[in-house]
Simulated scan of single mutants.
Amino acid sequence: MTPEAHLYLHRQRTTELPGAEPESGTAGTATGLRARLGWTLVHVGLRLAVPARPAAALSS
């Protein structure tokens, strides 16, 4: 699942609400950048938290 999936679902459900106003383009860009940066930091943190697996030894 892509990190932006929850944002897509949020936008879809917002448009279905009666009287919902469309989001402005400038606010969505900043929010999208914030979400991508946040998820990138989560992925980096998970890589740092999980112990590295030892490399497979090559034998001839």
Rank of each mutant, 00 (worst) to 15 (best):
P54T: 01
H10S: 03
L33M: 11
P18I: 03
H10F: 11
H43Y: 05
G25C: 06
P51I: 04
T15E: 15
S59N: 08
H10L: 11
T26I: 09
L48A: 15
R47D: 12
R53E: 13
R53D: 02
G32W: 01
A20V: 00
P51K: 05
L37S: 08
P22S: 10
E21V: 03
A27Q: 13
G19I: 03
A27T: 15
V42C: 03
T15L: 12
R47E: 10
L46C: 13
E4V: 05
R34T: 12
S60M: 11
L9S: 07
L33H: 07
A57V: 14
T29M: 14
R13Y: 08
M1R: 07
A55P: 02
L48M: 13
A30E: 08
H10E: 08
T29P: 00
S24M: 06
S24T: 14
L58I: 10
A57F: 06
V44E: 08
T2Q: 06
E23T: 02
H6S: 10
L46I: 05
A49I: 00
W39V: 00
E4W: 03
R53T: 09
S24Y: 04
G45Q: 00
T26C: 05
A56G: 02
V50N: 02
L17D: 04
S24Q: 09
T29N: 11
G25F: 09
T14S: 13
W39A: 06
G45F: 01
A57H: 07
H10R: 12
L48D: 01
G28T: 03
P51L: 02
L9T: 08
S60G: 15
A56V: 12
V42L: 14
V44Y: 04
A20T: 00
L48S: 10
Y8D: 09
E23W: 03
L33E: 06
R11D: 15
A20I: 04
T2S: 14
L46P: 01
T29K: 12
L48C: 13
A56P: 01
R34V: 07
G25N: 04
M1K: 07
P54Y: 02
P51E: 06
R47K: 03
A56E: 07
E16G: 00
P3G: 09
Q12S: 11
W39F: 13
L41Y: 01
T29L: 15
Q12F: 13
L7R: 12
G32T: 06
L17G: 01
A27Y: 07
H10C: 04
P18F: 03
T26F: 11
E4G: 00
T40N: 13
A57R: 15
S24R: 14
L46W: 05
G38C: 04
L58P: 03
G38M: 07
R13I: 04
A52S: 14
L9D: 11
T31Y: 04
L41R: 07
P3H: 10
A55L: 15
A55M: 06
T14F: 01
R47M: 13
E21D: 08
A35N: 04
P51S: 03
A20R: 01
H43P: 01
L17Y: 01
T2Y: 04
L58D: 12
L7S: 13
P18T: 04
R53P: 02
T14W: 09
R34Y: 10
G19M: 04
L37Q: 06
G28Q: 03
A56H: 06
R13V: 05
A35R: 11
G19R: 04
P3R: 04
